[in-house]
Nucleic acid binder design. Sequence first.
DNA 1: TCCCGTGTTTATAT
DNA 2: AATATAAACACGGG
Length: 259
Amino acid sequence: MPELPDVEVFKRYFDSTSLNQSIRDVKVSDQTVVKIPESGLKSVLIGYQFRKTSRRGKFLFANSGDSNWLVLHFGMTGYLHYSSVKDDPPDHTRLRITFDNENALSYVNMRKLGLVDHTESLKQYIREKNLGPDALHLDHKLFIEIIGRKKGTVKSALMDQSAVAGIGNIYADEILFQAGIHPKRPVSKLNEDEFHAVFRQTDPVLETAIEREAVPGRMPQHFMLPRREPGASCPKCRGNIEKIAVSGRSTFVCPNCQK
DNA sequence: TCCCGTGTTTATAT
DNA sequence: AATATAAACACGGG
Ligand SMILES: [Zn+2]
């Protein structure tokens, strides 16, 4: 689930549920995903309120005052869940933050590929993680420059978080499908028009996905995203969608529409 | 220095 | 029942 659009949806969910409520308790139920000991998290959270959030790529940051940032990354299976403290938290809840208003925010992650961390400096954390600029609303020239200097296939370039942050396996496929570019094309062989086609599709794909709350079934008819299965038909030409591997990741492509 | 393949993780499907 | 797969990244060899 969690690529840029999903994490942006999580951010809005966080903003609409969990800001400006005093934190009463913090429970860590998995100390491998949560990188800070429970006692440490308690000391930076209890008695504070989340004031604002920030997103860079697939990372979500929640601020509760000067030099106090909670870091959330969702891996492949993470999400947020907010409910009454009296309700049982979902399975695989790794962290639960309880507010004075009797509600609680849970960080849920079935697999342990994500992380919860803490940092005093957003800038420094982003630098340490080597994250490129956010993929959404990226400047045209910068996008072309960053992607253009990469080696390898255009799909792996788009998915490189140190180049442009936020695009993962699903949305790389979608952007390239909308752009009519084959994911295995080497970046070095793309001409100016093809670079431009990829750039031109990036914002609309990401923005549309956010509008539809990143739910596959709510995507527009011309999206390939809900059709990631062998034998599906291309929404543009009705041809057969092909499943291939690119940098070891499952990739769906219409060989007729993507050259 | 950069790119790519491998390992990590756990529930599901075959 | 073993095996493969899945929206993630870290790491090490070439
Ligand atoms: Zn097609």
